[in-house]
Nucleic acid binder design. Structure first.
Lengths: 187, 187
DNA sequence: GACAAGAAACCGTCCAGACGGTATGTTTAA
DNA sequence: TTAAACATACCGTCTGGACGGTTTCTTGTC
C-alpha cells in the first residue's frame, strides 16, 4: 500500500512527464539506448504505469515523435498567421521557427537533439520523411520555387550546425544570414 | 574444429568486413540497436573474432567513425587537388563530395544513414563536432566568408533531404542547384 | 444527491531471452 | 616457438513486458 498509489490521478500530466523525461534521457545517452526502467524511474512512475500509457517501447518512441511534430506544426502555423504574403510563406515560417533560439518551441536544445536521434531510428526516419513530403505537397503552390527549396535546405544545414557547435554562432552574422534567407524566400 | 577456423588468416579483410556489416546493420535497425552477436554472425566471424579486432562495442563504433571520416577526408582532399582556385576551394570540394551520388565515396546511401546514426550517439556527435571545427579552422583563410558558410549549410541540408527522400531529386534541378552553389562559393 | 458498477490509472513482482564481455582453447603465420 | 588470429563456451546483468492486484474516477440509475 504505497504512498504513490494513493496520490491523485493525473493521467495527462504523467504522460507528459514521461515524454519529457524520455526526451531528456535520449539526449544524454541516445534514443536507442534509453530503457523503460530508466524512463519510468526518472519520471517517478512505476514501469507498470509507464506501460499503461505506452503499451510498448515503440509506442513510446512514436509518442515522442507525435509530440514533437505537433509542437512544430503549431509553431509553424502560428508564424504563418503573421505573414501576409502568400508566396514563400511556409518557407519563412519554417525558417523562423527553426532559426530562432527558442522561437516558438520550448526546450530548444532538447528538441534538436531529439530530432536527430529520431532520424537515426529507421522507423521514425520514415515518419519524418512522410512529414516533409506532406508539408511540401501542402504548400506546393506557394513554396516550391528553387529559391524556396534552397532556403529550406540552408535552414536545415544551419539547424544541424547549431546542434553540433558547442558555442552558438556570432549573433550578428546569424542575423545577417537570416535576413538574406528571408529575402531569398520572397524572390 | 570448424571450417572458419581453418581458413586463411586475413586480419585486415576481416576487420573491413566487420565494419561494412556493422554499417549495413545500423542502417537497417539503427546504430544503437546493433549487437555484437548480429554483427559477428552476419560477417561470418565468431563473436570472439569480432572482439579480437574491437575489444568492446564502443571501439567498434569508434572504428566505424574513423573509417568513415578517413574516406571523407581522402575524397575531399582528392577534389581539392583538382581545383586551382584557392578561394572557397574546401567548400567546393565539400560540395562535390557530398553532392555527387557516389562521387568519391562508395556505398553512398549507407554512409549517409551511418552518419546520421552517429550524430545521434552523444559520444560520436562530439567527435563529429570536433571534425567540423577542425576543418573550419584549417581552411579559415579561404573558406570563412558568409557565402561559403551558407553554401556548406545548404549542402548539409540537401544531404539531409537526400537521406530522407525516397525518390531522388529531379536531376536537372539538382544540377542547377549545384551550379548555383559553386558560383556562390566563388564570390 | 446517493450509490453501485465498471473503467481507467496506476503499482510491484516476476521471468525469459538478449546482450556485452571474459576465459580459454585451437590454428596459422612469422 | 611465439604471437597473432581466430573459435567455443559460458556468465552476470539488463531489459522488455506480462500479469495480477489496488485505488481512484466516471457514468448511469434512481
Amino acid at each position: 500500500m504505497s504512498e504513490a498509489h494513493h496520490r491523485k490521478k493525473q493521467p495527462e500530466a504523467v504522460r507528459q512527464q514521461l515524454l519529457e523525461v524520455a526526451a531528456r534521457l535520449s539526449r544524454e545517452s541516445g534514443l536507442g539506448n534509453i530503457t523503460l526502467d530508466a524512463v519510468s524511474r526518472a519520471a517517478g512512475v512505476s514501469k507498470g504505469g509507464l506501460l499503461h500509457h505506452f503499451p510498448n517501447k515503440l509506442s513510446l518512441l512514436d509518442g515522442l515523435f507525435d509530440d514533437l511534430v505537433g509542437r512544430l506544426d503549431r509553431a509553424i502555423e502560428a508564424e504563418m498567421l503573421n505573414d501576409p504574403v502568400p508566396h514563400g510563406r511556409f518557407t519563412r515560417a519554417y525558417l523562423r521557427v527553426c532559426f530562432n533560439p527558442a522561437g516558438g518551441i520550448e526546450d530548444d536544445e532538447d528538441w534538436k537533439a531529439l530530432t536527430i536521434a529520431q532520424l537515426a531510428e529507421p522507423h521514425l526516419r520514415e515518419r519524418w520523411r512522410q512529414w516533409v513530403e506532406d508539408r511540401n505537397a501542402e504548400h506546393v503552390g506557394t513554396d516550391s520555387s528553387v529559391d524556396a527549396e534552397l532556403v529550406r535546405f540552408a535552414v536545415d544545414g544551419l539547424w544541424l550546425a547549431d546542434l553540433l557547435s558547442s558555442h552558438s554562432m556570432d549573433p550578428e552574422r546569424r542575423h545577417a544570414l537570416a535576413e538574406r534567407l528571408v529575402q531569398l524566400s520572397r524572390s
